[in-house]
């Protein structure tokens, strides 16, 4: 049984078909990249998977269970947690309190949640900032906090929405290593990313969306050489990069 099955899912906003007839699956522990030009419908897919939007048609199965009609918090408890493209820390709460909210999904005890949150912060490399209000963090730190909070809910499948956007090369590399470490523990990752180097090196498989439709799917090297993808999105220079 696959971890995630998306079957013929569609979503329309007024006159805009944001996602049409999208079908794909994910296996346990897989890293899947979701790429495409701006407005291709990637974030809409995340909103559909995480319960922030309801699909007009189609079915989403997570661990064999339909997500139809479930609220975001219920989907989180099933083991599917998303991050937000525009980071949304709880600004007046400390970094530790932020992560604690995520940890409380798995324990009712505030003390236990704080201990779990500290462990996650240590792993993410934010423990030194535990007592700092989240509103005072740099963008790179906020991105890592977003990751830490999601991780504290102990997901089986983690949806990462552009966690590397706006970061320097060194910061991006740190996040790539973090995602790799998270995945090594068996957490499957669905990744929306514009940083091609990162998405190519992390993903086992990539799906390319354009105008809400899947135009290509396959291993990174194949995707980078697909003429449809190059035409829609990537640009000539990546052909050489993927081959090299």
């Amino acid at each position: 049984m696959s971890l995630l099955e998306v079957r013929a899912v569609a979503k329309r906003f007024g006159g805009l078909q944001a996602v049409s007839d999208l079908t794909f699956g994910m296996a346990d522990g897989e890293v899947l990249g979701l790429i495409g030009p701006n407005g291709a419908g990637k974030t809409t897919v995340f909103n559909l998977l995480s319960g922030f939007l309801a699909a007009d048609a189609g079915e989403i199965l997570f661990r064999g269970r339909s997500l139809r009609g479930l609220r975001p918090h219920q989907i989180c408890h099933l083991g599917l947690t998303r991050t937000f493209q525009i980071v949304r820390p709880f600004p007046h709460l400390s970094v530790l309190e932020n992560v604690k909210v995520g940890a409380l999904a798995r324990t009712a005890s505030a003390r236990d949640a704080a201990a779990r949150a500290r462990r996650v912060l240590e792993e993410i490399g934010l423990l030194a900032k535990a007592e700092v209000p989240a509103g005072e963090l740099t963008l790179a730190e906020r991105k890592r906090l977003e990751l830490a909070r999601a991780l504290a809910t102990e997901p089986v499948l983690l949806l990462l929405d552009e966690v590397m956007a706006g970061l320097t090369a060194a910061e991006t590399e740190r996040i790539v290593e973090l995602v790799r470490a998270i995945n090594r523990r068996g957490v499957a990752v669905l990744l929306i990313e514009h940083v091609m180097r990162a998405v190519m090196s992390l993903s086992e498989r990539i799906i390319v969306l354009n105008y809400g439709e899947r135009i290509a799917e396959g291993p990174p090297a194949v995707i980078a050489n697909d003429p449809r993808v190059i035409e829609a999105y990537l640009g000539e220079e990546y052909v050489g990069a993927a081959q090299g």
């Binding site: 922030f52 989180c76 709880f90 999601a150 809910t153």
Partner: peptide
């Protein structure tokens, strides 16, 4: 602080 973000973290708002 942020109701949607809390829902994403499992909070039944």
């Amino acid at each position: 602080e942020d109701e949607d973000a809390s829902e994403a973290l499992g909070v039944n708002a």
